[in-house]
Structures are given as C-alpha cells and as structure tokens.
Design a protein around this nucleic acid. Structure first.
Length: 817
RNA sequence: GUCGGCGUGGUGAAACGGUAGACACGCCAGCUUUAGGAGCUGGUCCCGCAAGGGGUGGAGGUUCGAAUCCUCUCGCCGACACCA
C-alpha cells in the first residue's frame, strides 16, 4: 500500500535538504546563464507575517523558480526593513529595547518564512538596523551632502503631534500621519532635506520601464509639473517703499484680469504691507492659520476665508493698483506663496471675490459672445478683451506666448516651471534609525563625519520617550565629540534618518551583502543591476519607488552607478481582504499562515494563495477554499504513487492516448504563458485540469502507457514552482534525479498541442443554432456545404438563400438572412 | 471636485470581438465507509415538462457576432485634492 500524502513529513525534510545544498544560492559572475534579478519589497519587522505577505511572496516565488528552470541565473534575495517607529513605540509600551524587539521579530518572521518553502537566497539576508548596513546608509548620506544634495534648512514642516516627529510630505495622507492617523500640523523647524527636486524632470521620464500605467500616472501627478510665468508685481509697503512681489501663474493670458492679490499667511511680505488699521485682524488671521491642522486648512468643502491687509500692489502690465489680501487657500509651499487673483477665470478666485465683494473683470471672451454678467468663472478658450495691446489675441495660445515674451522683454519676470514635488525631508526626532553623520563645530560649522569614522553608532542606553526633541540629544556621550577638521570639542547631529532612506538602496546591497569596505561592489552591481523584476504593493507607488529612483540617479551622477533606473519591470500584487478590511495587526483580522501550514501543509497554502484570485487584483480571504487545493495535492500524490507506469511502458496508439498527449502539451503551453504574465490562478486551474484527466484515465489501459508516464512527468515539472515540496518528493518517488528544481522547464510541441477536430459554432442571424465537429483544416467551401446541409440549418433557412456568410476558421460560421 | 480602475452564478473566479460561467469553494441527491482533515458518481445561471427563450449593474450604439469596443448613467474601490 502506498504511503499517503503527509506534508508535515515531506516538507521539512526537503527544506532541510535544500538548505544544506544551498539550492537557491545565486551564482555570481562565472556563469554563462543570463542573469535574472527578481526582488520582492522587503517587509517591515512587524513581528508576524500574515497571509497578505505570503500572497505577495508566493507569486514572485513561482515566477523566480520558473525563471530558474528556464535556465536563468536567478538572484532572489530577502531582507528586513528594520528601523522605524513601531519598534520604538512597542519599546515604550512594553519596556523592551527596540533592538531586542526587532531581533526577536526577525527571528519569528524567518521561522515563518522557512515553512513557506520559498526559493529565497537567505545567504544574502540583510537588516537595515545592522551597523554593517547603516554604516553605508550614512555613507550615502554623506555622498549626497558632499554634492550639495543634502542640505539643512528652516522651513514650515509637517509635524505629527502624536509621534512627536516631522514627516516627509509623502508621509502625510489626507492631512494625517501615515503611521498613526493623527492630524498633522505645520511647524517651523530646521531640518535635513534631500534635493529630490533637482531630479524632478528626469523622474518624469519612464522610458524603457515596464511599469503599471497606474504607478507612472501617480508619480507623474505627484511630481506635478506646471509650466507658467513668474511676474514681479510691485507691493507698496507701509514704509512707502516698493518691494517686488513675485507671483507664479499658469495663465499669463489673464494678467489683465487681475483685480486683487493674495499672499499665503506665512509669506514674509504680509508684515510689510499690512496697514496699522488692519494689523489686528491680519495678525489674528495669520495666527489662526498657523495653528490650524492641514486637514482644516485644506478642506475644499470649506468656505474661503481671508483678510484684507490694507496694502496694494501694482500690476506691471497695466499699472493698476490692486488690493493685497491674505488667505490660506494660497500655500507658501507651492509656487512663490503669492498669487495674482483673476476671479473671472479661476474658480477659487471667483469664490473668494464673490464672498468679499471684489471686482470680477473678464478678459477672455468666448467665441462670438459678448461678456455678460458672470455667474461663474469662464475657464475655456476665447479671445482677449480688456487687455490693452493684446486685445483680439486667441487665448490661451498664442496669448500666453505673446504675453510671456513681453513680460520677459520688459524685465518683469520670466517663464518658469513649478513642481508640486518638494524636497524630501529626511530627519526624524526619534531614536530607532540611522544617526545623521554630521558634526557641528563652532569654528567649522557643519562637518561631515569622515568615512573612516563610520558608522556613527546608535547608542543602546537611551531614554527614547518622545518629547518633541531627539532622544539622542539627552545622551551626553553621544553628543560630545570632536571636530573632524580642527579636533576641538563639537556636537553631533542628534536626529536620525527617515527609514525610507534605508530602503532606497537595499537592492544594491543585496548584490554584495556583507561587503566590508564599501556600500556595494561595483562589479557585482554591474553584473546584477538593474532589478529585472520588482514586485510589491502599490502602496509604495510614490514613496519608496520615487525615492529609490532618485537615489540611483544621484549615485549615478556621483559616478558610482552606470545605469539610470533601479527597477526595469514592476508588478503590483493586489490586497488580501479579510473580514471586510485589509489585513493588519492593528485591525485584529490577521490570518497566521504558519497555522495553516501546520494543518494543510505549505504546498496547499501556497497553491491556494495562487488560486484564490488574480495576483494583481487580490481578493477576499475565506478559509474553506484551501480544502480544494489540499484535495488536489492529495489526488496528485495518490495518482503518482499508485499509477506511475514502469520504465518500459509502451505507446498505446489509441485515440485516448493522443488526447492525453494533446492535453499535456496544451497544459505546458498554457502554464508557461500564465506564469510569464503573473496569471497564477489560471496556472493552477490548468494543473487541476490535467490532473483530472489523468485521474479519469488512471484505472484504464491508458495508465500503463508511456504517454501517461510523460504526462505525469510534465505535471510534476509544471507543479514544481507552485508546490515545490510535493513535486520534489514525487520526482524522487518516480525515480528521477534530484532536484526537480534544477531540471529544465518542459517544452511543448505546437503540432502535438493542436487538436485534429474542432467544434464549429453555427450562428444564424447572430444566434447560436448548431454545432458541428469538423476535422482541422477543412477548407471553407467544404465547411459551408456541410453546414448548409445540416437539417437544423436547412429548417431555419426555409428555402431562402443567405444574404451573407462569414467564416472564422476553426470557430464560427455566421449566416445572415 | 479631478483622474484612474472595477461591476459576470450562492462564493472565489474563467473567457485573442467568436460556444458566457473553465478551474475550484459551497450546496443538493445517490453510492461508499476512511488515500491523513473523508472518497466516488451525478446535479447545480434563470424561466420552461419539453422544444425553446432569457441572461455578464442599467439604457442606448457600432458589428454577421459584444462581458469585451463607443456614448450616457448608477454603484463600488483607489490616487490626488484650494498646486495658482
């Protein structure tokens, strides 16, 4: 009696063997196979992997295994994003040190991962909190610093009152902290920034990248490039001087329609133009705006607010004096923080003008219509009116071009480009991160820590309760140092870096993990990079992916890399929903994959994750479904252990056998295409179909044929990426050489996959009326004759002759009466 | 508000413009009593005894033929959201 299927015995046995043999170790260099760098986004060390993680990894694992069987030298590494707030918050809550917390979590996650049986090359495992790693994060910071791409600046920044730290723009979602959902407020602080805006234009180029359109669109919108014109209006200050008041507009064609100006509350000119009688109101308004959260300020539902400063500015184009207002719908962080208001042709300005009774002056007239009383702003095309020498020009073009040229010639301003993208704020007032490697010297100012003094180690004994300033500041031994330039006493920077800095270059480190003398080995990077296929959640469409692209470009310009983009192909998996929401620890709806592995085996869990939904869509998790893949595997095990034909099995030459050969080759073809296109659900369905056919045959004569034997071999090879343990076990049971995972992918023969008969669908007036089995290759005349001779068809024709007959070979004959 | 994506059985889902519902889950009936979380056979979109008819959120359109393409509309999801 054959052994029954026992995954709990099979799986650990093979996992140990693979690990002992280093089966999944990528071969560096000396290898004539083409390289394939497959990468999954590394996880944060939250403590447990849930089915969402597994769903994200199993598809890529199948694809990587498939690539290896196709003859590629595959690099498929794994590591951990190990710095960050949650570890610190857990430390505060439970009194455990973040380093210990993180180490324990990594251990637990690794144990869970082992049970998955993935083909990760764990010899390259890295953790970003390891000094051997963050030493090089610091080194990269210094490379940017030395090239002027890292700078310190005082600016209004996003501050999370709960986490007590600043946040990057990208980490503010709907005005709330990405991590804890607390409404973010603005604070004026001196912080470190990376000059990502220097690369705004290049980051808009996605040439040669095979990325989801959605991600490209999101990044493009995030960067938000707008071409426009900067113009100096002349603000008349209370002291009687004239001060240039620079505005940015994308609609220079409406410059003659300006009826007032608006300054952002934080704009430095506010104080200089506000008259004494208006000062109390303006001060109160500015103070209120400063204290309001972004949520309150940015609500578009809210009615416009603002106050008149009492001051005026002069429009250089027509010499008119217009009032200057302050309103929070103008943002200090975009353009110049000041706008010209053209209520006739801008919705926001129109709403504001209506509310405060300001003039609305149309300067663009829609075709052939005189401008009547405006009830809403006119945004469309037209002809300039009330615009002096520009009257009669078509707007927007060529009016914009003409006015731009005029403004430039007069020296009032120049065409320019504005971006929504802002520089990346990377300093954090928290403990668990890579210290910023600079020193402040009274004499020499901000000094880079020399390379040979890296890493700047994170001290272990620190009171990291968040109090709004950096915990490292309260560790005198850390702060006190000497100036690398003069050797006199100096102070270390006490902030740490945003964890997105850590994750912006980890894919480079994987190419030469553990390298002591450099961040990465240029030869290894040259060999492996760029990543051929990057896989992960679409939630990183902006943050991580944009930052990583920036890093590669910045390092390239520093002469350290010879390519432009880190990730050639990007694929996003969908989300697994359970109990109505995305699975997360905080929502308490987490399914632990290791428990399911215990009860059903890793292969059944893997197969189910592939089968449950298209990988790119994600889907709902429901427990019952796993029984189906479990049954399938049990069936395959039973089938192979009870009916694998002997070596000397002979061909049968029967119709059933030809049918089996055909299905085998069709399955190889379908599976190959499905895996290439990340359609893992139909991949599994094809395997089930082949198994069902073998099952039907398994008590018949056919089960003793050589073709049955070949069909099983093919089934096992096709199954290997999805259910690596069972495939390996049955490969051994059937007497093949170890390891199935090093065996070549099966090939299909198009002529054997082709059917020799096909079912022709007969449509009459668009409706399916008949079906006829015909030999493949039947010529059209013969098809027509056969169909028209069918009694059913003849009945419908009823003596009439068809108006038209359309034949789609191999599929349909459509008769129109 | 703007821009994307998606609407198919009781459920997860298949379907180069060409047989809608592959492959599963669940359910129903029968058989069997256990290949380790039972198995096997059959059934399972709707109406109809049948012949047949209807059916992919809704309404139109293009086409010999539409789940698929176009227009409008409703619903859900996602991103951005006063960006001048």
């Amino acid at each position: 009696m054959p052994q029954s299927y026992n995954p709990n015995e099979i799986e650990p046995r093979w996992q140990q063997r693979w690990a002992a043999d280093d089966l999944y170790r990528a071969a560096d260099f000396a290898d004539d196979r083409p390289k394939w760098y497959a990468l999954v986004m590394f996880p944060y060390t939250s403590g447990d992997l849930h089915v969402g993680h597994w769903f994200a990894y199993v598809g890529p694992d199948v694809h990587a295994r498939y690539k290896r069987m196709r003859g590629y030298n595959v690099l498929f590494p794994f590591g951990f994003d190990a710095f960050g707030l949650p570890a610190e918050n857990a430390a505060i809550k439970d009194g455990i040190h973040p380093a210990d917390y993180t180490r324990d979590n990594v251990a637990r996650m690794m144990a869970q991962l082992q049970t998955l049986g993935a083909a990760f090359d764990f010899s390259r495992k890295l953790e970003t909190c390891d000094p051997d790693y963050y030493r090089w994060t610091q080194w990269i910071f210094l490379q940017l610093f030395k090239r002027g791409l890292a700078y310190k600046s005082r600016a209004p920044v996003n501050w999370c009152p709960k986490d007590q730290t600043v946040l990057a723009n990208e980490q503010v979602i709907d005005g709330r902290c990405e991590r804890c959902d607390t409404p973010v407020v603005k604070k004026e602080l001196e912080q470190w920034f990376f000059k990502i805006t220097d690369y705004a234009d290049e980051l808009l180029k996605f040439d040669g990248l095979d990325w989801p359109e959605k991600v490209v669109t999101m990044q493009t919108n995030w960067i938000g490039r707008s071409e426009g014109l900067e113009v100096d209006f002349k603000a008349i200050t209370t002291s009687g001087d004239e001060a240039p008041m620079r505005i940015f507009t994308t609609r220079p064609d409406t410059l003659f329609g300006v009826t007032f100006m608006v300054l952002a509350p934080e704009h430095p000119l506010v104080a200089r133009v506000t008259t004494d009688d208006r000062r109390a109101d303006v001060d109160a308004y500015v103070a209120e705006a400063r204290n309001a959260s972004d949520i309150d300020r940015q609500s578009t539902e809210r009615e416009k607010t603002g106050v008149f400063t009492g001051g005026h500015a002069v429009n250089p184009l027509n010499g008119e004096r217009v009032p200057i207002w302050v309103a929070d719908y103008v943002l200090m962080t975009y353009g110049t923080g000041a706008i010209m208001a053209v209520p006739a042709h801008d919705e926001r300005d129109f709403a504001f003008a209506r509310k405060f009774g300001l003039e609305v002056r149309p300067v663009i007239s829609p075709e052939g219509e005189p401008v009547a009383e405006m009830t809403e702003p006119y945004i469309g095309e037209g002809t300039l009116v009330n615009s002096g020498r520009f009257d009669g020009l078509r707007a927007p073009q060529p009016a914009i071009e003409e006015i731009n040229a005029h403004v430039k010639a007069q020296g009032w301003g120049e065409p320019t480009v504005a971006y929504r993208l802002r520089d990346w704020l990377i300093s954090r007032q928290r403990y668990w991160g890579a210290p910023i490697p600079v020193v402040y010297c009274d004499e020499h100012g901000t000094v880079a820590v020399p390379d040979d003094q890296l890493p700047v180690l994170l001290p272990r004994e620190v009171d990291f309760t968040p109090e709004g300033h950096s915990p490292l500041g309260s560790v005198p031994e850390f702060v006190a140092t000497t100036c690398p330039t003069c050797g006199k006493p100096a102070r270390r920077d006490t902030d740490t870096m945003d964890t997105f800095v850590d994750s912006s270059w980890y894919y480079l480190r994987y190419t030469s993990p553990g390298l002591a003398g450099a961040a990465f080995d240029p030869a290894a990077v040259d060999f492996w990079m760029p990543v051929d296929q990057y896989m992960g959640g679409v939630e990183h469409a902006i943050l991580h992916l944009l930052y990583s692209r920036f890093f590669v470009k910045a390092l390239r310009d520093g002469g350290m890399l010879a390519f432009d983009e880190p990730f050639t192909r990007l694929r996003n998996q969908g989300m697994i929903i359970h109990g109505g929401s995305k699975m997360s620890k905080s929502k308490g709806n987490v399914k632990a994959p290791d428990l399911m592995v215990h009860s059903h085996g890793a292969d059944a869990v893997r197969l189910y994750m592939l089968f449950i939904a298209p990988w790119s869509d994600g889907g709902l998790w429901y427990d019952e479904g796993i029984d189906g893949t479990r049954r399938f595997l049990t069936g395959v095990h039973h089938l192979v252990t009870t009916s694998y034909p002997a070596d000397d099995a002979a061909p049968l030459e029967s119709a059933e056998e030809r049918e089996l050969v055909r299905l085998t080759h069709q399955t190889i073809r379908a599976v190959t295409e499905d895996i290439e296109h990340f359609k893992f659900n139909t991949y599994v369905a094809s395997l089930m179909k082949l198994r069902n056919a073998l099952q039907d045959a398994h008590r018949t004569e056919l089960a003793r044929s050589v073709e049955y034997r070949r069909a099983i071999d093919a089934l096992l090879l096709l199954l290997a990426p999805a259910a690596p343990h069972l495939a390996e076990e049955l490969w051994r049971v059937t007497g093949h050489d170890y390891s199935i995972h090093q065996h070549a992918w099966p090939t299909f023969d198009e002529s054997l996959a082709a059917a020799d008969e096909f079912e022709l669908v007969v449509q009459v007036n668009g409706k399916v009326r008949d079906r006829v089995m015909l030999p493949v290759g039947t010529d059209e005349d013969h098809v027509r004759q056969t169909v028209l001779a069918r009694p059913k068809v003849a009945d419908l024709l009823d003596g009439r002759s068809p108006k038209k007959i359309i034949y789609i070979p191999g599929r349909v004959l459509s008769i129109v009466l």
